[in-house]
Simulated scan of single mutants.
Amino acid sequence: MPSPQPGADNPRQCSAGSKSEVLANVFAYLNKSMAGEIQPESKQQRMERQADSLADSQLWHDNYRASFLPAFQIVGPHLPHKYTDDRSRVRLGRFGHRTSD
C-alpha cells in the first residue's frame, strides 16, 4: 500500500509540510481508502516493491563502500607486494616436523 504522503516512500524526496497539511493529506487518504477508491497492494506487488527497495539499498551501500577504498585490479604479471624474509619462513623437515636452521 503506498504511503499517504507524497514522496514518503523515498526519504530523499520527503517533503512533509506543516502539521495541518500532513493531517489533511492523511485524512484525505483515509477517506479515499474507506470509499474504495484506492485498491490495496497485492502480495506480488508488495514483494516486487520490497525487492526493488532492497536492490536500491544494496547498490547505494556498495557505492558508499567503494567511495572509501576503490579496489584496483592489477592486470598482467606483477611482483609480490611484500617481501618475506627467509628467516621467518616455516620449513618442514622429515616426518613433517618443523626445522630451524
Rank of each mutant, 00 (worst) to 15 (best):
M1G: 03
P6F: 01
P6K: 03
G7N: 05
A8R: 10
D9W: 04
N10P: 02
N10L: 06
N10T: 09
P11V: 03
R12C: 07
C14Y: 15
G17I: 03
S18W: 02
K19I: 15
K19C: 12
S20P: 02
S20F: 05
S20A: 12
S20T: 11
E21N: 07
L23G: 04
L23R: 09
L23A: 09
A24R: 11
A24K: 13
A24P: 02
V26H: 06
V26M: 10
F27E: 14
A28Q: 03
A28W: 02
A28K: 15
L30Q: 06
N31T: 10
S33Y: 06
S33F: 14
S33N: 06
M34H: 06
M34P: 01
A35K: 07
A35E: 11
I38E: 00
Q39A: 11
E41P: 00
S42K: 02
Q44D: 04
Q45E: 12
Q45R: 09
M47W: 03
M47D: 13
M47L: 13
E48Y: 02
E48D: 10
R49V: 02
D52K: 15
D56H: 03
D56T: 12
S57R: 03
S57W: 09
S57I: 04
Q58A: 13
L59R: 11
W60L: 12
H61N: 10
H61I: 04
D62S: 12
D62M: 08
N63Q: 15
Y64H: 14
Y64P: 03
Y64Q: 10
R65W: 05
R65I: 10
R65T: 08
S67Y: 01
F68D: 08
F68V: 04
F68Q: 04
L69C: 04
Q73C: 02
I74K: 06
V75L: 08
H78W: 06
H78E: 08
L79C: 09
P80Y: 09
Y83S: 14
Y83P: 04
T84Q: 08
T84M: 07
D85W: 05
D86L: 11
S88L: 15
R89A: 12
V90N: 10
V90P: 00
R91G: 00
R94W: 09
F95V: 07
H97C: 12
T99K: 12
D101P: 12
